[in-house]
Nucleic acid binder design. Structure first.
Length: 779
DNA sequence: CAGGTCGGTGTTTTT
DNA sequence: CACCGACCTG
């Protein structure tokens, strides 16, 4: 047990931990020991005699909750820590809804729809209402509905709100109300809640049933909310309602790190906390213990350009540290090659473990190039996020069977698997069933269970009736099995007897084999789940609980081999709250970061800038920036310009690894103290200038003469092994077309197509070259 | 009805 | 490029 948990806290940290009564806002700058404060605060509450039963802590990921719980357990002991309620908003309130959903007519076994499920429902609704699918694109419709829900606009309040209706009419979507209504009806009928419902329905119950509110108010006497800057209105109201009795509410956050407005996060929740709780104490944690001074100062430099924020003075007393190194790549592949080589080199020379490195990017689609490059060098890595395991088709298919067992009303699940694997139940048949189900108001599952009775009326022939009957007997058999066997056994049986496994095994392509493996892994994870639940006092190894937990389990939460020595690849969003000794922030290009989707308004740009701030402040010792001047994207090679954020970092903090021609001009132009151009017009100006003879940059020879970058790609394909530079070794004297004579200092890379050379030229200094492009001649 | 192919389309971030 | 849906063929 850690007895002296209060020692070693700085002044504001101490205050944040020990101010236990009344509202408290902790403004925690990046790397200021926020997690430690939260952990110790909870430990302190328990030590002060407050029952863990009365504490609710809402964290941003379930993993964060688990880790904090472990640390708390070390201070106050296992048993006390166990009964704490900690988790994400979604998982905590999903759990509460399981016991309270009956108030609003939902079964406690309600299904949680993920985005894909919701989109499928919406597609059907739009079709059913015979609306134009070009105007009512499912994703767009979904986004609007999500926005309504996150702002607690129910179907009814929508219909009573002329402003909203008008807004949708202006957007040429006057049927939004109808769609919304139908979507909510369908979800209700299916006994399903989408992600937003978990919050909206919680609010509904707390508002409509005072006795439920009172129960949870009395239970959660001490409430802590982490990452408060990223709460949405719905979450805000839940917290406010629960806290209104005791007002022991502690919110922790950093307005400079608010990066989730696209899912309704409202930065004003934190900016206006003082208005909600005039007596609130505010504590600011400003000392950054994580990063070097250079990193902190550079990050401050950038974030200072935002207008909407609290005044803060985040500083570091750590070493000044190395400058941020910037690599200008020719292409996405070149960028990835640089990052991989760099990691390899640092791994060898500086004794960094692979897990010390993170590669952070704006979009998931950027992963591929890095995966390729890391694989080539045999560097172990793990990609976080993206398509999660549970979203894979084959996994969702098996899960759909299981969902149907738990909740027979889940039509999404039913329709997904009724004819998968194929059993001769086609579209015509299903349409007849759906029409009948709607008309007679009989659930699909009931129609199927008595298909012998209904079949004829619906107009099905006897062959079809038999097929449907067989299908339902299969499902019924599984349901019977579910009563006596455990989750794993049931799933195993389902996988086999449904024909799913056999169907998948017939496909012997690599993809097919991997699908079988994924199903196998799902089955294994169920065994793990059962064991895990058996260890818990209040464990629940039911299928229902399994399905509920995986719907809200993110990639992050799956703690497979946390000690594995792997480079982490993830989006900046997912990196929030994490830290790494060495960070590569990649793809720093206009239209990628900041995203072209978020460059039109000041608010959007400020959020992108906060995202940049989050990314940079993940780094402890060293940060690398990189960008590519061309990128393979959407099936084409696209030109790119350096991100404006690069020019927002003062030149004092950065070092260009391979200065580009642009930077020379910028430096001479005196436009900015940055090493990068400040405004896009001048970038354009430089582009028009023919770079040729006056611009001896290391990459100069590779620059295509025109804006069309295809020659680069062609060169790679035609000459993958770099024919002319094959036998070059360290120490060799070489001649380069443009730079003249030099000596090879360093070679890097095992893959012949991607070897880099550092060459010291007599007149031009050190250059980094990719051998296959550089056409060096051995002298 | 099953399964394949073709072509159009959309591309940010996630619970 | 990757995904989806419409359409075509056996």
């Amino acid at each position: 047990m850690e007895q002296n948990y209060l020692t070693g806290l700085n002044e504001p940290q101490y205050q944040a931990v020990t101010t236990t009564q009344g509202p408290l806002m902790v403004l925690a700058g990046a790397g200021s020991g926020k997690t430690r404060v939260l952990t110790m605060r909870i430990a302190h509450l328990i030590t002060q005699g407050i029952s863990p039963f009365h504490i609710l802590a809402l964290t941003f990921t379930n993993k964060a909750a688990r880790e904090m719980k472990d640390r708390i357990a070390r201070v106050v002991g296992e048993s006390d820590a166990k009964s704490l309620w900690m988790g994400t908003f979604h998982s905590v309130f999903a759990r509460i809804l399981r016991s309270e959903a009956h108030y609003i007519g939902f079964p406690s076994n309600f299904t949680i729809y993920d985005t894909q499920d919701s989109l499928n429902v919406l597609k059907k609704v739009v079709k059913e209402l015979s609306l134009d699918t070009d105007i009512y694109k499912p994703k767009k419709v979904m986004a609007r509905i999500s926005a309504y829900k996150n702002n607690l606009i129910t179907v009814r309040s929508y219909q009573q709100n002329p402003e909203l209706i008008e807004a949708d009419e202006r957007a040429n979507m006057k049927h939004m109300g109808q769609i919304y209504q139908r979507y909510v009806e369908q979800c209700f009928k299916n006994g399903a809640m989408d992600f937003d419902d978990l919050l909206l329905r919680t609010n509904e119950i707390l508002t409509r049933f005072p006795e439920v509110l009172a129960k949870y108010q009395d239970r959660f006497r001490y409430i802590l909310v982490d990452e408060y800057q990223d709460t949405n209105h719905s979450q805000y109201l839940i917290v406010k309602a629960l806290a209104s009795k005791f007002e022991n509410i502690c919110v922790v956050g950093d307005d400079a790190q608010s990066i989730y407005s696209f899912r309704g996060a409202n930065i004003y929740n934190i900016l206006n906390f003082k208005k909600d709780y005039p007596d609130a104490v505010t504590v600011s944690l400003e000392q950054n213990y994580r990063s070097t001074q250079n990193i902190v100062d550079a990050a401050n430099d950038v974030i200072a350009r935002n207008t909407q924020q609290f005044k803060k003075n985040v500083f570091s007393d750590n070493e000044i540290g190395e400058k941020i190194k910037v690599y200008r790549a020719l292409s996405d592949a070149d960028e990835a090659g640089f990052v991989a080589s760099n990691i390899w080199e640092l791994h060898h020379t500086k004794q960094h473990r692979f897990k010390d490195f993170a590669i952070l990017y704006r979009t998931n689609s950027q992963t591929r190039a890095f995966e390729d490059a890391l694989r080539k060098k045999n560097i172990p890595y793990r990609v976080y996020g993206g398509l999660s395991f549970y979203q894979r088709k084959e996994v969702k298919d098996l899960l759909a069977y299981l969902r149907l067992l738990v909740n027979p009303n889940d039509n999404e699940a039913l329709l997904r698997i009724v004819n998968y694997p194929a059993r001769g139940i086609g579209e015509t048949t299903l349409n007849k069933l759906i029409v009948a189900s709607d008309k007679e108001n009989i659930p699909l599952s009931s129609l199927l269970s008595s298909i012998g009775f209904y079949g004829k009326q619906i107009g099905l022939n006897s062959g079809t009736v038999a097929k449907l009957g067989d299908f339902w007997s299969l499902i019924s058999a599984f349901q019977v099995l579910l009563k006596e066997a455990d989750v794993y056994q049931v799933a195993m049986e389902v996988a086999q007897r449904s024909g799913l496994i056999k169907f998948l095994k017939d496909d012997q392509t690599p993809e097919g084999i991997s699908r079988v493996e994924n199903v196998q892994e799902l089955l294994n994870s169920m065994r793990g789940f059962i064991e895990e639940q058996q260890q818990l006092e209040d464990g629940d190894p039911s299928l229902s609980n399994f399905l509920g937990s995986i719907a809200l389990t993110t990639d992050q939460d799956q703690n497979k081999d946390p000690n594995a020595d792997q480079v982490s690849l993830m989006t900046i969003h997912l990196s929030k709250g994490l830290e790494f000794p060495v960070v590569h922030l990649v793809g720093l290009e206009e239209n990628l970061f900041p995203s072209f989707m978020s460059s039109s308004t000041r608010e959007e740009l400020e959020e992108e800038r906060r995202l940049f701030y989050v990314a940079l402040t993940r780094a402890e010792k060293q940060a690398f920036f990189s960008y590519a001047i061309s990128r393979f994207q959407w099936g084409k090679i696209t030109d790119a310009e350096p991100s404006r954020f690069l020019s927002e970092v003062r030149s004092d903090f950065i070092e260009l690894l391979n200065p580009a021609r642009e930077s020379r001009f910028v430096n001479h132009s005196g436009l900015s103290s940055s090493l990068f151009d400040d405004t896009s017009p001048s970038v354009r100006k430089f582009e028009k200038k023919p770079p040729k003879k006056t611009l001896p940059s290391s990459m100069g020879s590779l620059e295509p003469k025109s804006k069309n970058l295809k020659p680069v790609a062609t060169a790679r394909i035609i000459n993958p092994s770099g024919a002319s530079s094959e036998n070059i070794e360290v120490g060799d004297k070489v001649r380069h077309d443009r730079f003249g004579v030099g000596e090879v200092l360093f070679l890097d890379g095992t893959d012949p197509g991607n070897i880099k050379a550092k060459v010291l030229f007599q007149n031009e200094g050190e250059k980094n070259l990719i051998l296959k492009f550089a056409k060096l001649t051995k002298l």
